[in-house]
Design a protein around this nucleic acid. Structure first.
Lengths: 225, 225
DNA sequence: ATATATTTGTGTACAAACAACACATAATGA
DNA sequence: TCATTATGTGTTGTTTGTACACAAATATAT
């Protein structure tokens, strides 16, 4: 067998949600190739660490961000995707809670920044392609798995959830029907707490109950928006 | 950066359907490790070929099978999954038409064989794990994408489609409602051909019309079983 | 303090989709 | 020619989805 010389990297598209828009974390590259350009965080896997461990390590090193949800997205293996040679990248898909926004802001000097997905800079490598796939995954998956909660504070008013869905799916959502549907799934705990944000009637807070969700799922209830 | 020594392989879980059961292609390993054990086809990627090309080449070399549908499944990167050292494997998911059964049967001497997924031998490496993921993908995807047709002859009687779904999903299907649903999608051409197989009224043949499907999809029709 | 603007919270009626179900037809084979 | 087997088809009741408006609770401006 001839000698294989392929290097393996991991990359992560990390989504956040705040103020009615979806953002992702980008880093500004310090070295060639694509020096000075924005890219999604990532790097080479070590010989003895799992792919998940590699992503988590790279995210920690490059952004200091506290990831909340992580899953494999896709593996990109086009022979020409990296000018340094053959690099196959296993891309991951991550979600963080709103408080992670501040963490990144604090390490601003390290060239880490949130970008709204409606206002992105040019990206290094094939990262635009990776990102497109990630956005599609987010849009698809949010409709059949309860991952939206991973983008909100643990306790949230119903309107936050509704706006998140409207933003991600890019369409209006009927407030009453949406609420009815979610409530009927019986996977949220309604708390005895209210929050008032600006004018308007204060909203009751809700909390996703994963145990209840899994129980309901086994009973045959299906999450679907 | 320290020297990375990770090797990259590709593997393929190839599904076929015939006589009311789902089968996959396995090969008997000629070399260590796991010599003599059954495994899903695959091998190391070459430096300058895409991952898809690598899978197709390996499938060709090892099984001679004519693949009909191929998509990436998942990348398995556990550091201990291969006793030879660190090997990360990009697994693919494939479907073939019934006529491919015969092709494999013809190359029987090469230790290639179809196994019903209800009657599998022990598998090498973490291939059982890969297979489980593939089966889940098949079951999920067949309900929201028209991939079932890739497992049938181009022209098929409706009952074949119905039995395929019953087999894959592991549950009975109401014949009338199923037919109604599929017909209403308006993605099949009804042919002026009949086929008679054994006793019973001869069945009309149908054919999947991909162009029509994509047109309908753009119009907002969603495939869903 | 009062009026206005803003956001939350809630129910009903109509339409569409789903689920359950039986019998006639066209062939084979005994 | 009679029994068996598989195909082909429609209706009805139930469930789910969709459209839609007004009262309650607060903040803000006057």
């Amino acid at each position: 067998m001839n000698k294989q010389s392929i290097r393996l990297s991991v990359d992560a598209v990390v989504f956040g949600y705040e103020e009615d828009h979806i953002s992702i974390v980008l880093i500004k590259r310090k070295y060639e190739p694509f020096k000075g350009q924005w890219a999604i965080p990532g790097g080479f896997a070590l010989n003895d660490e799992s792919l998940e461990a590699a992503v988590e390590r790279e995210l920690q090193e490059e952004t200091g961000i506290k990831i909340n949800y992580l899953e494999q997205l896709y593996t990109f293996g086009n022979p020409n995707r990296d000018p340094r040679g053959r690099v196959v990248s296993v891309a991951y898909f991550g979600l963080v809670r709103p408080d992670a926004f501040k963490i990144v802001a604090a390490t601003d000097a390290e060239q880490v920044q949130w970008f709204s997905i409606n206002d992105l800079p040019e990206l290094a490598f094939d990262h635009k392609h990776i990102l497109e796939k990630a956005i599609k995954r987010l849009q698809d998956k949010i409709t059949y798995q309860p991952i939206g909660f991973e983008l909100l504070d643990k306790k949230f008013p119903f309107s936050d959830l509704e706006k998140l869905y409207a933003t991600v799916l890019g369409r209006a959502i009927d407030r009453r029907n949406f609420r009815k549907k979610i409530i009927n799934l019986d996977i949220l705990d309604e708390l005895d707490e209210k929050v008032s944000r600006g004018s308007g009637r204060p909203a009751n807070l809700f909390q996703f109950n994963p145990e209840h969700y899994f129980k309901r799922k086994k009973e045959g209830i299906i999450f679907e928006i």
